[in-house]
Amino acid sequence: MIDFINFHLIPGLVLGSIYALGAIGVTLTFGILRFANFAHGEIMTLGAYLTLTMMWLTGWHPLILLPVTMVILSLIVIGMDQAFFKPFRNSPAVTVVIASFGLMLMIRSVTQFSWGAQLQAFVPGIQRPNVFFDALRISPKHILIVISAMVLMLVVHWVLAHTRIGKAMRAMSDSPELARLTGINTELVIKATWILGACMAAAAGVFLAYDSHVSTMMGFQILLPTFAAAIVGGIGRPYGAMAGGLLIGVTEELSSYAWLGDGPLLEPGYKAGVSFAIMIGVLIWRPSGLFRGRVF
């Protein structure tokens, strides 16, 4: 039983927190700009590499550098929006999604060109876990990741619930026509959406790199689980994205627990398929997701 908590539940929570942060950006873009942004994974990767570069320059802890990364990444993402997404504000979703494919390839090749394909680590060496009650093993970095993620999610909640711009974002997600009629500055709301999404993507990228390592494909590798988290939670529902992320992360790790007999329930080779299967199931039976998001 303690193995279950140590090796399946806790890693699932850590992974889930990372998915959740990524999914917040996906779900906001999906809800407000109305397209699935395939470049979101590469934005997370870029966040990790920016932090890594600053660590080389300053030698500071990645979590201290995270706010700086968020600012830089937000500026980059707003630039991308102006260059590659703004021309398509009134185009069909298919066109914008294909544009985001193109952007994904471009960011990835720039990352590979600038930083090379070599694997990097934030902090070399390994961290032994703290042992509680003689059995419960939790690594300090996992505590840090989960707590930081929770704090960031609270910030997102506060922005959406209590600031003018946050309320405008929610209004636009619920009904763009109505929002426009009531005089909301849509371009401003779109900017705010990108900034919030970019900040959460930076955090997701940095936490993922902090937990494992930095590689040029890391963002793309968690893109589909992130989409799955956004859909499972309900599109345009940041709280849903958080819940969806945790659900997907925990389920992925639990799928290979020995629920029946000795062997893993699902061959670990298929672990990557778990999130897709959940997502497809939700799309079919409850397309609005757990939190009753929008269905387009």
Binding site: D3, G12, V14, S212, M217, M218, S256, P268, G269, Y270
Partner: peptide, 20 residues
């Protein structure tokens, strides 16, 4: 003896099954 899919973020659950 377990195969695993490369490029995943975490292998903790696989390792726990292997370690028995």
């Amino acid at each position: 003896n377990q195969m695993h899919e490369p490029n995943k973020a975490s292998y903790r659950s696989e390792l726990s099954t292997l370690s028995g």
